[in-house]
Amino acid sequence: MKILLIGEYSRLHNSLKEGLIKNGHNTLLIGSGDGFKNYPIDIDISAKSKEIPFLFFFIKVFYRIFKIDLSKIEVAYKFYRILPKLKDFDVVQLINEDCIKTFYKIEKWFLKKLKKQNKKLFLLSCGTDYVSVKYANDKKPRYSILTPLHENNKLKKKYNHILRYLSKPNYELHKFLYQNINGVLASDMDYHLPLKNHPKYLGLIPNPINIENLDFIPLQITDRINIFHGINTENAYKKGSSHFESALKIIQNKYPEKVNIVTTKDIPYKEYITLYNESHILLDQVYGYDQGYNALEAMAKGKVVFTGAEQEWLEYYNLQEDTVAINALPDEKKIAEKLEWLILNPEKIIEISKNARIFIEKEHNYITVAENYIEKWKN
Rank of each mutant, 00 (worst) to 15 (best):
D331H: 08
I43R: 10
L83R: 06
W109M: 09
L70W: 06
I343H: 00
K120P: 02
D90T: 06
I227V: 13
K101M: 13
S125I: 02
K22H: 15
F228W: 03
L282R: 02
K249Y: 10
K120M: 03
I227F: 03
K154P: 05
H150M: 09
E347M: 03
K376N: 08
C99E: 11
Y159V: 07
I211M: 04
G292M: 03
Q311K: 13
E8A: 05
I211L: 06
P194D: 05
R224N: 12
I343D: 00
K50A: 06
M299Y: 07
F62L: 07
L94W: 02
N327M: 04
H229V: 06
L319I: 10
E245M: 12
K338A: 11
L204K: 09
I221A: 08
G302Q: 01
I145F: 14
L111F: 13
L177P: 00
A47C: 09
K140T: 14
Q320S: 13
S71D: 11
P169M: 04
K113H: 13
K134Q: 15
T368G: 02
L55N: 01
I217V: 13
K362C: 09
A325L: 11
P141I: 01
I211N: 06
D331G: 08
G127T: 14
G302V: 04
N235D: 13
F66Y: 14
N153D: 13
F56D: 15
N345G: 05
E363G: 02
Y201M: 03
N96T: 12
N253W: 03
Y237K: 02
N232P: 09
D223W: 01
I352Q: 00
A295R: 00
L177K: 00
V75C: 07
I326N: 00
L185G: 00
L185P: 00
G35H: 08
K140L: 15
V92P: 00
E97H: 08
E257K: 11
P148K: 01
F359D: 00
G302E: 02
Y178T: 04
